[in-house]
């Protein structure tokens, strides 16, 4: 640097183009950069090289994702990107696990509006962008345990539901929060099926203290990028200590209520699926055991059968259910 001439950027800080390119090809060689799309900050978990599509998301969301910090980590092997985005239960797009990946690619998730209503000071229809204006996006690596006894480890991007609820200011009558998925048979072939036993739209609910728990996440992305449509874009719930079906996808309505809301699987088979749906190895599903789970991806000769943990290993939520008979409130 020359005396008397101040420059905001030191010339030594400028990376030459060739160095930049070789660094990038090195990263590519290591599988750290997938595809040609520019991906957000390298601090976040990135997909290992994959032939599958990437989901950069709308322009307004990208900077928020890029500035995300990892706030919740796990010492467990991540489920690979390819499995996370191709193995989904999203019955709106079909009953087979690969249906959502195959059928949801044209699902329109931007612009997106969410209606806030019920026992809340600021009801109304919000653009997702405005709803997210004041929240910080974090990366959180959570276990995900499906009621069907398989599980994954997933790097979500999102924000605590509590931070949104505080902004919306629910009234003291708000004892529960209800969530509703989009109903749009034109875009969602599963909603047109004549042989489905589900009454659309999909709905879920949480008790207000569960909703306010710091672990409860509203996710807008996964694997360092925006949420793929098959994973519930653009906005989905993630409640890591509950079975996966509680983590409702593609949310269009959030209602604060005084009474316990219904939830879709309880409506479909109430003797099998309850309101709480906490992961619990000691309370079996009537048709299969919940004592163990298969950590995906499994292979035939290495089925990766592991013991299921109480509250999926998130023991800190136990006080929420103090004194409750969890075999009754399954």
């Amino acid at each position: 640097m020359l005396i008397g001439k101040s420059s905001k950027i030191l010339s030594s800080e400028i990376t030459s183009e060739s160095a930049y390119l070789s660094r990038r090809s090195l990263l590519k060689g290591l599988g750290l950069v997938a595809g040609a799309t520019s991906m957000p900050s390298y601090a976040l978990t990135q997909p290992k090289s994959s032939d599958l599509p990437l989901y950069p998301g709308p322009d307004w969301l990208r900077p928020k994702l890029e500035s995300a910090k990892t706030t919740w980590s796990l010492d467990e092997e991540l489920t690979p990107y390819d499995s996370v985005i191709t193995y989904n239960n999203f019955y709106e797009f079909g009953l087979n696990k690969e249906d959502p990946y195959e059928r949801a690619q044209n699902f329109k998730t931007d612009p997106w509006q969410v209606e806030i209503l019920g026992e809340v000071e600021r009801p109304g229809i919000y653009n997702l962008e405005d709803l997210l204006a004041k929240v910080d996006i974090e990366e959180r690596i959570y276990r995900f345990r499906c009621v069907e006894a398989w599980s994954m480890v997933i790097p979500w991007l999102g924000f605590s539901l509590a931070s949104l609820i505080k902004q919306l200011n629910p009234t003291s009558n708000a004892k529960y929060v209800e969530f509703v998925t989009l109903e749009d048979p034109e875009q969602m072939p599963g909603q047109r099926s004549l042989f489905s036993t589900i009454d659309w739209p999909y709905r879920e609910g949480l008790r207000i203290d569960e909703a306010m728990h710091p672990l409860t996440l509203l996710a807008v992305g996964v694997y360092g990028q925006a949420m793929p449509p098959q994973n519930g874009a653009p906005l989905r719930l993630v409640v890591p200590w509950k079975y996966g079906f509680k983590s409702i996808k593609s949310i269009v309505q959030i209602r604060f209520r005084e009474t316990m809301p219904q939830n879709t699987w309880r409506l479909t088979a109430s003797q099998e699926y309850g309101f709480y749906a906490n992961v619990n190895p000691t309370v079996d599903h009537p048709r299969w055991s919940q004592a163990t789970e298969r950590r995906l991806p499994s292979s035939l000769f290495n089925p990766r059968i592991i013991e299921t943990q109480m509250f999926n290993g998130y023991e800190e939520v136990a006080p929420l259910y103090a004194g409750m008979d969890l075999s009754k409130w399954y």
């Binding site: 489920t79 191709t86 193995y87 292979s299 035939l300």
Partner: peptide
């Protein structure tokens, strides 16, 4: 399909 890893993420269930 099993041998060529084409049964998806949960091959056991599929099989």
């Amino acid at each position: 399909l099993a041998y060529s890893n084409q049964l998806g993420a949960d091959p056991a269930k599929e099989l």
